[in-house]
């Protein structure tokens, strides 16, 4: 059997398959369907300093080969997470990351700081790319200066694995990637959703309450793949690729483009068992092609 273990900074994952924030709840939502401890890493729902109700319904629109969402970081806040959710998930045998978001620099700092003390949370994914909130979120991730600023500030207070999630809604994503790497990001994940829009022609109204939302699913895969390839060439830290991964072949394409690990998002909504199918599928691909290790695949694109 080929070796599937990968390293993100100092952290070892049992395989390169992770779940994308906001698509896998806190993991336990899926435990009726799969053994969630088989997954390389679970990134839990975006968490903010204070409770957020998120955006009004409707928050979702189905699109050709994808969906738009405008959830707006609904969560009960970091203290509720620590007191009520963490105890229920801390014994899951996988790497659990908390996706951290904020409206201000200070909120990012305090939230990240509070997560330092949780023994079974080996890392955070810094979300500077949420397109569905009025303040903060994507605003931090669309300029090199502000992206660097927030990563630098969080790096000062957060000692564990710091993954930074980038927005594709920029002119040059490699530039942003280099800026966050320079400030101490241990790994870089991309892409968050692409800003999009859906209209109901019969009602002559937008479908989403927020008018615009974030596009995900197979529709975004070619863009995500291109961006992962660009970023992997631009930085030395590991890259975690995501965007429309529906099966093992999609995942392998991201690994070939230079991703050390991948995240599965929207596909979980259609097949709650898809993560383990992807893990098994990558293993079969490695065996079939006589690769000893997943590292034989990472960045192995022949151009």
């Amino acid at each position: 059997m080929a070796e599937l273990k990968v390293k993100l900074g100092k952290l070892q994952l049992k395989n390169p398959v992770m779940t994308a924030s906001g698509t896998f709840g806190y993991g336990t939502e899926y435990s009726d369907f799969i053994d969630i401890s088989r997954i390389g890493g679970i990134i839990v729902k975006g968490t903010t300093l204070r409770e957020r109700q998120g955006n009004p319904y409707p928050r979702m629109a189905e699109t050709p080969s994808g969906m738009l969402n405008a959830v707006g970081l609904q969560n009960k806040g970091i203290d509720y997470f620590i007191d009520h959710i963490y105890p229920t998930i801390k014994n899951i045998d996988t790497n659990i990351f908390v996706n951290v978001s904020g409206s201000t620099l200070e909120e990012y700092i305090i939230t990240a700081e509070k997560l330092n003390s949780l023994e079974k949370i080996p890392g955070i994914e810094l979300n500077i790319s949420c397109p569905n909130v009025k303040e903060g979120g994507m605003a931090f991730g669309t300029s090199c200066l502000s992206a660097a600023q927030v990563v630098k500030a969080v790096r000062m207070v957060y000692k564990n694995e710091l993954m930074v999630k980038l927005s594709p809604n920029v002119t040059d994503i490699s530039e942003i990637a280099r800026a966050v790497e320079a400030e101490g990001a241990d790994s870089i994940s991309l892409i968050n959703t692409l800003l999009g829009m859906a209209i109901d022609a019969n009602k002559r109204k937008p479908i989403l309450s927020t008018i615009t939302g974030g596009l995900s699913g197979p529709a975004v895969k070619p863009i995500a793949l291109r961006m992962v390839w660009q970023v992997a060439k631009a930085v030395k830290v590991p890259v975690v690729g995501m965007g429309g991964i529906m099966n093992a072949t999609d995942a392998i394409e991201f690994l070939l483009a230079g991703a050390t690990a991948i995240q599965v998002g929207t596909a979980n909504f259609i097949d709650p068992t898809v993560t383990v199918k992807i893990i098994d599928g990558i293993g079969e691909y490695l065996n079939k092609n006589n690769f000893n290790s997943i590292y034989d695949l990472i960045g192995a694109l022949e151009t």
Binding site: G22, E29, Y57
Partner: peptide, 17 residues
């Protein structure tokens, strides 16, 4: 019967107030 994606409480798309 709100529009839904996951149906199992993961995506938070189908909320009602």
């Amino acid at each position: 019967e709100n529009t839904m994606a996951c149906g199992i409480g993961a995506c938070l798309c189908c909320v009602t107030d």
